[in-house]
Amino acid sequence: MLQKKPEKLIDKDDVRIDGRKLNELRPAKIEVGVLGNADGSAYIEQGKNKILAAVYGPKEVHPRHLALPDRAVLRCRYHMAPFSVDERKSPAPSRREVELSKVIREALEPSIFVEYYPRTSIDIFIEVLQADGGTRCAGLTTASLALADAGIPMRDLVAACAAGKVDGRLVLDLMDVEDKVGEADVPLALMPNLNAVTLLQMDGSLTIEEFEKTINLALDGCKQLYALQKEALKSKYVAVKEAVEE
């Protein structure tokens, strides 16, 4: 299927093709504890993205020789479903997915107290059901919630969001077309309470000033997502409390 490339991604009133302002996130809906069989799970719908994350562990490591004597091993699989994109994607892990799995694992590791549970493994599965750009960030945001839902001790939640340059303008939370047609994309993950960045990548080109502005834009997006994450994590308990203590 050929997608027609739009002529302009941002109109003269600073409105993007999906009606967002330049510094606006896509509307996000987050749910925690959606899967019965995993130790922890979460689901996000951010714009057209639909992503499911599940966590198992800490548990005995299989195969045994991978276990570390001083900390837990963190294993992560980012995977896109064959039906997540316009043209069927092979379900086998692609180069891109292997790389994103590594990047996501490394972005989550500083948030977890892995040294508390030596000789164990914590397994994270991120399944992209429908993709529309920015899935590594949305996947990261969701996986962090799944970890918290599994009861794994964490320094902070990790919230992730991208910013970039489209039609010469700096924008927040790029979707697929903007990412493909635009000039630059900067995904960033943040532990907001500790003010620590755990992932920072860039493709495309930006001047130094633009880069700084883009990062600030992304940081702001992460903080907005963080508020949504906390709300999602709490909502289940708040609902029960209100129901019985009215």
Binding site: S111, P153, N193, L194
Partner: peptide, 8 residues
């Protein structure tokens, strides 16, 4: 009060 990981 209900808190989440990372709350000061």
């Amino acid at each position: 009060q209900l808190v989440t990981p990372g709350d000061l």
